[in-house]
Write a protein that binds this DNA or RNA. Structure first.
Lengths: 372, 372
DNA sequence: TTGAAAGCGGTACCAT
DNA sequence: ATGGTACCGCTTTCAA
């Protein structure tokens, strides 16, 4: 019987001896070391330390013991000892929203590919909550904190958030923002402006000349950018300002509905295409048109932005701009890991032409639409 | 100056400043204690220990110091010291899938309400990956591990997964499964069977008598349950078996499309309503009908299951059964926290009647449909 | 190579 | 109430 009880003072086994265990306690590295007949340090090196400097024989011994005991290293203990974790923290506004869940998917993809685990929190579209979460997350000492939210002008909590994140960064953390440029941190943004511009150019090429543009409140940057981008594209294609009508409404489906109804009521005139700055709004537009007896895609064309799944399910399928949110998510992780203090990274968007905007002059089918 | 620092950064890093500026290294509880002029122990009690047994004056001192220094407790250190974390681990098949993102939303809701943070991982619909993740997650010692996946008969990894989870549970962890009954752990399931049955009854009441049922492979439990539930409902409402046609296909949109086309090709006969076991399939069905020159909702009724967002965007809006996945998620956390070794918890579903199944005999609008 | 031991940032028991 | 201190489980010098 080897007398190598190196544990704390007492000669008794550290674990309970005979009493019934209320809590089994999980296998520790020390257990593995003992089982393998090596020291704690060696066991640690064998299981982690890259196995460098451990005699092959011992290496095998330790690995065997670990497997036999079902040992899993305690991540928290590793983190305290090393001073760094293997996690990336994510703050989104709402997981159930396809926009954010796509981003989250991209982030988990990239994170897992790098051996990181994602801790996800939901800010519920509240800047204050976002701040609280950032603070709490700091306690977990993640390698990266990614915040994907629709920044709204709220300078009050904004400064606090910046301070919080700055403090996190000061201790070695990396912050990456998604779609909320203007803050002093590396940012990944979707190229809304350019996407909208390309859509406009494509529509003009398809033969449309007179437009109604339905957008949301200007303080929502996403909406503003898409709106501006679209008009820029029209102008660049030679469409005059007096051939465009601009309507401002809520950034929701019913906002789109109401705007389209208003449009119909005051007379569509010779408008050929209605562009709504989000697919959701565009779907509201379609509904309103139908309710007014107009058939979208036949009587009047409609286009949206985002390429949500409904966009291709709707009839006629909606022409829109696909936003690679998943890529935006992965890119955020990449950016965080790379340490670059890069300028805003722009994620390109893609125009998808579908049945809601048939090629105006010709009578053929839509020329580009990939899926229906 | 006490020379006991052998850390990497050399002794140059001052442990405390004389005035009020934060340090480059992150603030520790010891820093706060020193700043407040109390012991580590007291600081710990003041900041956590429930403030019981700390003189109000010191309590304030410590809290002030903490705030001044921007102290945030190190979650990993707390976890190692306490032996338990404040996290719930979630394994989903695919975050981007609305089904799972809804579940995830419910879980984060409930978790955050209980002061827990969620670590989310994606199994990518692979049972093997699910197993690996479960193992890795165990290392984080979460309070609960929730697995939301579509269990498929894969007894190979299944046993390994059970072993892994059992080991986790043996050390005090809680396991909760969502929608994959049959495993020896607390489970939350959606009441597919009953929902389908209610849908059938509702449709019969609405006047439909002859049905086609399109379902997926029987090994997908969800599909099977819905299929069975529907036929049970029909039978209970007095619909004879020879008034039903059953078609088996893939559990996808194109599966629905193909099945409906086949149906049309071999003659719809006097079929009045097509029920597809998922909305996605139902949308495929609608497309196929249209392609065959039939107008869904007018020439023939269509119903689905899930109430995905497209269901209400499609025209005509799809009659379906809403599945409260978000509630299923919250319920899972509740179940995990409660410690009940409950029988499977069933989450009830709700029938939503919309335009795709107009009340057959009468000519009025749909009687129940809440939203359009 | 290997083991002993000093932490990492906290918690909690034990005297005082 | 408060401070001293023995851990928690693991990493990483430092000597041997």
């Amino acid at each position: 019987m080897s007398a190598l009880d190196s544990r704390s003072g007492s000669g008794a086994t550290p674990r309970r001896t005979r009493a019934a265990e209320p809590e089994p306690a999980s296998v520790t590295l020390q257990d593995v070391a003992t089982e393998a007949g090596v020291s704690l340090a060696t066991a640690s090196r064998a299981l982690n330390g890259g196995s460098r400097g451990v005699r092959p024989e011992n290496l095998a011994r330790v690995r065997d013991a670990a497997a036999r005991l079902g040992y899993v290293p305690n991540a928290s203990a590793q983190a305290t000892a090393k001073g760094s974790t293997q996690t990336v923290a994510l703050v989104v506004s709402d997981v159930a929203d396809p926009y954010y869940s796509a981003v989250a998917a991209g982030i988990t993809d990239a994170a897992e590919a790098n051996g990181l685990v994602v801790t996800m929190t939901v800010a519920d579209r509240s800047p204050r909550r976002e701040l609280e979460l950032a603070r709490g997350l700091r306690g977990h000492r993640p390698q990266i904190i990614v915040i994907a939210g629709s920044r709204i002008n709220d300078s009050e909590t904004e400064q606090e958030l910046i301070d919080e994140l700055a403090q996190y960064r000061a201790t070695g953390g990396r912050v990456v923002l998604i779609s909320q440029p203007g803050l002093p941190f590396p940012t990944v943004t979707v190229d809304d402006t350019h996407g909208a511009e390309m859509l406009a150019r494509t529509m003009v090429q398809a033969g449309y000349r007179r437009y109604a543009i339905i957008c949301g409140p200007d303080r929502i940057k996403t909406s503003l950018d898409r709106c501006k981008g679209f008009t820029t594209g029209l102008r660049a294609s030679g469409i005059e300002t007096d051939e465009q009508i601009l309507i401002r409404t809520r950034f929701t489906r019913s906002g789109g509905y109401d705007a389209a109804r208003e449009l119909v009521e005051r007379g569509l005139g010779d408008i050929e295409l209605i562009f709504a700055v989000s697919d959701t709004m565009a779907i509201g537009v379609m509904t309103a048109l139908r309710d007014a007896g107009l058939e979208p895609g036949r009587d009047i064309a409609v286009a949206g932005f985002d390429d949500i799944s409904s966009a291709s399910d709707v009839v006629p399928a909606l022409t829109t701009v696909a936003v690679p949110l998943r890529e935006a998510g992965s890119e955020a992780v990449r950016l965080g890991l790379s340490g670059e203090e890069a300028h805003p990274v722009h994620i390109p968007t893609t125009v998808h032409v579908r049945e809601s905007t048939p090629r105006a002059p010709a009578s053929g089918r839509s020329p580009t639409g990939p899926s229906v």
